[in-house]
């Protein structure tokens, strides 16, 4: 096989080194991994197509591969961040990893959040639990350098079960200090260490009541949250075309070949993971 083909083979992972591991929550089943590419060429290739909202396949050599949403923004040029929950074989082993370990990465895959369409609009971001990862990527992108000017108001609603469950506490603190974003953090029920909002995400969304006018809503969270947030957005006047969701399915290849992540005729891994509510209505859904 010649050199070109080798680069083109989408099944071969690039090597990355774990630069840092950060525990994100009190229960310690959620960790953020900071990854550095071993080869500059691999990095350049990765960043060529990288948009917030995409995912990558992380390889733990000898164990397997998992699709994980990318938590860092393309504007953070030197590294990649992945926030990973301990759930299966691969993630378990990743959680046991220390700094300096070499793992593999393939990607970026998927369509990502619709940045072009969002320009000039007001942005409403609604997230729950650790599904906030690709939304963090999005927010960091929005706040980077000149990007902020291209967008209107930014309203964020982020809810977790309890204060210890929030990811990216440093980022949240920094965003909280800024006056060009409206950050609403909420927990499910009263907690002694909590002085911010209390209530489920849909309820808080209703209270914050973002205006649908010239706005786009980006939603990512557990299915139950999405289920109850969609009607709230609708009530507020958001049309299906204005609501974007990031979906999850079991994926193996990430490139639309292994055939399991389809929703109707669309593959989540290449046509998604971000779909507008309107698109989803069109699809034949299980």
């Amino acid at each position: 096989m010649n050199q070109k083909q080798e680069l083109d083979n989408p099944y071969i992972p690039s090597l990355v080194t774990i630069e840092d591991v950060n525990s994100e929550n009190e229960v310690n089943d959620l960790k953020t991994f900071k990854l550095i590419f071993n080869e500059t060429a691999d990095k350049e290739k990765f960043f060529e197509n990288f948009k917030p909202g995409q995912f990558a396949e992380i390889t733990e050599f000898g164990i397997g591969e998992s699709p994980i949403g990318i938590a860092s923004s393309p504007t953070e040029e030197d590294y990649l961040l992945f926030t990973i929950k301990k759930t299966g074989k691969v993630t378990n082993r990743l959680h046991d990893s220390k700094k300096g370990k070499i793992i593999g990465i393939r990607g970026p895959f998927g369509n990502g959040w619709p940045l072009k369409e969002a320009e000039g609009k007001n942005i409403v971001i609604i997230g729950g639990g650790f599904a906030f990862t690709t939304l963090r990527s999005f927010i960091v992108y929005l706040l980077h350098g000149n990007n902020r000017e291209k967008f209107g108001d930014i309203i964020i609603v982020y809810g977790c079960r309890n204060p210890g469950e929030f990811c990216y506490k440093d980022d949240l603190e920094e965003w909280g200090k800024r006056d060009d974003i409206n950050l609403n953090l909420t927990i499910d029920s009263e907690h002694p260490d909590w002085d911010k909002l209390v209530g489920f995400v849909p309820t808080i969304t209703k209270e914050v009541a973002p205006s649908p006018k010239n706005a786009m809503a980006f939603v990512c969270g557990p299915p139950i949250m999405i289920k109850y947030t969609s009607p709230v957005l609708k009530e507020l006047g958001f049309k299906d075309e204005q609501i974007f969701l990031s979906l999850e399915m079991r994926m193996k290849c990430g490139i639309g070949k292994c055939g399991r992540c389809n929703i109707g005729s669309k593959f989540v891994c290449i046509d998604g993971p971000v779909f507008s509510q309107a698109e989803l209505k069109e699809l034949l859904r299980d």
């Binding site: 099944y11 397997g64 193996k252 070949k257 292994c258």
Partner: peptide, 18 residues
Amino acid sequence: HCFDVQEQSDKNGGKRVR
């Protein structure tokens, strides 16, 4: 044509198969 991707390994290395 649907396939599954799995990994086989030992101490010294391994392979990925579909």
